[in-house]
Design a protein around this nucleic acid. Structure first.
Length: 705
DNA sequence: CATTGTTCTCTTTTT
DNA sequence: GAGAACAATG
């Protein structure tokens, strides 16, 4: 342990070994935060002899949780079953044991975004509301915001006069389905901890609580953390207000700004030394974030070398931009860079498509983090809906989903009838039976009876078929492949593959967790609705990574491309209204920049396809915030021969953007003659009107032209 | 009454 | 360029 501490700087060491009072670690980007957290856990186990299972570490994503767990295990050996989880999965655990206290059966169901939207759409339709105004996605997010305490239903009635009714019906429907949505997990989790008995039980149990990405916790999460450590001060939170990018989800920057007030005798330790980025990259990041007003204000520094200048490419179109990225990636790969060392970022998921096409054309293999998640694909959700109908007697959302999928001649009329029945009869199978009694057309009656048979067959086979075979059985018995061939002639094969993959995944999960039958599927379903990354299982590292900027938080890559730096895209059009929103976009850009260790490439396209048509764009205001002397512009090589033009589009660094005018405290305005090196330590020779030619380090100059 | 074909809208970020 | 609402067909 002592030797471990040797590798840390004084602040880091202090952060690891401090246990006297609640601790806030303000950890700048790349300041060795993860290292500090893992060492701190190791320190507790080895030095303070805390029981690993009584240490709770909360992270933001399941992926981060998994990584942290692995890193801790690497330090102290496999014998460290530290409880690492997200707030959401922690609450699921709590609720599995105590849900009855808040009026839910323990085998509850968790709705994902898609289920939620379907349910909302249904309610809006049932209420005969104007679907133009009452758009399900918008309403779904309003519901979320209300639940997170961002505002009350009443305050929304100016826009949506029926929102309160929708909200109430929605909650009622969840309850009837014995289901929680994501927000409910936290709300009811906190509710449980309000009971003094449980609060005491859990706060006694946990010897220490660690919370990562504290800047992105919301009020409810804060209250949960507080309940778990009440009066004991055994808490450490780690965050960086400059990286708060989830306020739209209720993340409350206040949590971090007022930590000292909330926790008595709180200690604050700042980590401001960056070990990740080159000077050039860090200079750019600092310059960008300085434009934000709402911050505590800290400035990162680094001992790393200046490194290469930031590259900028101005593309003719989104396709051209993607081609630039893929060609440049290919050049790097040729030079021996590992694919896993390269990442491509974008603001919105929809941007991935063009990039993917370009990468495929170059034969570069890639993986996408996030995006259309595996478990959100239609074919997967269809098959899972059958499983859910079997497992959750009251899951009417899934029941309605499978009613006519695949098509079995049961349309909207039957659906309506079924909904009526469901008002009385809460069990899925019961409702189906009543429905078949009511129907008069033989064909439909038969269809319902077949469906009932299938569901019951699946139930019987839950235990005696292996998971893979059960999925296969579902697929075959409902004739799903035939349905896919017909509905998706283009890509039915890959969809079939996905279903097989699902079978394999459950199979593996079953073997790993040593579960089977109902327990297995219950556990599996709640795990996948909470897991964001589909590639948890395939650890193929020989791939370039594509992801949104949001998904990149907490990660680092030697080479990073940030694409689509255009007004209305990054910053996003929906975040231009208020100063706060723009600052959040800027933090997002800051996060993106600071992921890069060695080389950063920025780009934007002069026109971009957004629906079917091209739209002209303007470059992002954020680009102007990156000091020009840190940037080198890349242009397309003009091919001389016709054959070259057709096949080999190449890109080269042609023009170096030099500062032309600088300002110095004492000398005033100066005209630049020469620049040597890059970044803060670059030497600039300039001519000053009253002082003549001087050579000055960039650090003391301000670029003004 | 269900299915098929057609027009129209919509896209931020995620547990 | 997808998915849902709407209209025409079987």
């Amino acid at each position: 342990m002592e030797s471990l501490l040797k590798g840390l700087n004084p602040q880091q060491k202090k952060a690891v070994t401090y246990f006297d009072s609640p601790l806030l670690i303000l950890a700048g980007a790349g300041s060795g935060k993860t290292r500090v957290i893992t060492y701190k856990i190791a320190y507790m186990i080895e030095k303070l002899r805390y029981k690993p299972e009584r240490i709770l570490a909360v992270t933001f994503t399941n992926k981060a949780a998994k990584e942290m767990k692995e890193r801790v295990e690497k330090l102290v050996g496999n014998s460290a079953p530290v409880l690492v989880s997200t707030f959401h999965s922690f609450c699921v655990r709590l609720l599995r044991t105590h849900s009855v206290r808040v009026g839910y059966q323990p085998n509850f169901l968790i709705l994902d975004t898609d289920d939620k939207k379907r349910l909302v759409r249904e309610i809006i339709r049932d209420m005969n509301l104007d679907s133009e105004l009452y758009n399900p996605s918008a309403i779904a997010s309003v519901i979320s915001n209300i639940k997170n305490g961002l505002y009350s239903p009443e305050s929304m009635t100016t826009y949506y006069d029926r929102i309160k009714d929708i909200f109430e019906i929605y909650n009622k429907r969840l309850k009837e389905n014995n289901a929680f949505d994501f927000d409910d997990l936290l709300i009811y989790g906190r509710e449980l901890l309000k009971s003094e008995e449980l609060q005491r039980k859990y706060s006694d149990f946990f010897q220490y609580v660690l919370i990562d990405e504290y800047q992105d916790t919301n009020r409810i999460q804060y209250e949960i953390a507080r309940a778990l450590t009440k009066d004991k001060g055994n808490i450490c939170v780690v965050g960086d207000e400059d990286q708060c990018i989830y306020t739209w989800r209720g993340a409350n920057i206040e949590n971090i700004l007022s930590f000292e007030k909330d926790f008595q005798n709180a200690k604050i330790i700042k980590l401001e030394k960056n070990y990740r980025c080159t000077k050039v990259i860090l200079d750019a990041a600092n310059a960008v974030i300085e434009n934000n007003k709402l911050r505590k204000g800290k400035k990162l520094y680094t001992d790393n070398p200046a490194g290469e200048p930031i590259r900028l490419y101005v593309a003719e179109s989104d396709v051209d931009e993607a081609r630039f990225v893929s060609k440049t990636v290919k050049q790097f790969l040729k030079k021996g860079v590992k694919p896993a060392d390269i990442a491509i970022f974008y603001r919105t998921n929809s941007q991935s498509r063009v990039v993917e096409d370009a990468l495929r054309r170059e034969g570069i293999s890639y993986k996408i983090v996030g995006g259309l998640k595996f478990y959100e694909r239609k074919e997967i959700k269809d098959i899972i809906a059958y499983l859910r109908v079997v497992l959750f007697e009251k899951d009417t959302i899934s029941l309605l989903r499978i009613l006519n999928v695949p098509k079995r001649g049961l349309g909207s009329a039957v659906e309506k009838k079924l909904k009526e029945i469901l008002q009385q009869e809460t069990s899925n199978i019961g409702a189906l039976k009543l429905l078949s009694d009511e129907l008069r057309m033989e064909k439909q009656k038969k269809a319902i009876e077949d469906l009932i048979d299938i569901v019951e067959e699946i139930r019987k086979k839950l235990y005696n078929l292996k998971p893979y075979d059960l999925i296969k059985f579902i697929t075959v018995s409902i004739g799903y492949e035939k349905y896919l061939r017909k509905e998706h002639p283009e890509d039915w094969e890959s969809r079939v593959e996905n279903i097989k993959e699902l079978g394999n995944t459950i199979q593996e999960f079953s073997e790993r967790e040593k579960l089977q039958g109902e327990d297995l599927y219950l556990e599996f379903l709640s795990t996948i609705t909470l897991s964001s990354d589909q590639d948890e299982l395939d650890e193929e590292d020989e791939k370039v990574t594509l992801m949104t900027v949001h998904a990149s938080k907490g990660l680092e890559f030697p080479i990073v491309f940030i694409t689509g730096l255009e007004e209305g895209l990054f910053p996003h059009i929906k975040s231009l209204d208020t100063k706060e929103e723009i600052e959040e976009e800027r933090r997002l850009f800051y996060v993106a920049i600071t992921r890069a260790k060695r080389l950063l490439s920025l780009s934007y396209a002069k026109k971009r396809r957004s629906f079917g048509s091209y739209k002209d764009t303007r470059k992002s205001r954020f680009l102007d915030e990156v000091p020009t002397h840190l940037i080198k512009e890349v242009k397309r090589k003009v091919a001389k021969k016709e054959s070259e033009r057709r096949n080999a589009i190449d890109f080269e660094v042609v023009q170096k953007k030099k500062p032309k005018l600088v300002f110095h405290q004492k000398f005033g305005k100066g005209v630049v003659k020469r620049v040597e090196g890059v970044g803060e330590s670059a030497k600039v020779t300039a001519f000053f009107a009253n002082y003549g030619e001087k050579t000055i380090v960039m650090k003391f100059l301000k670029v003004i032209g």
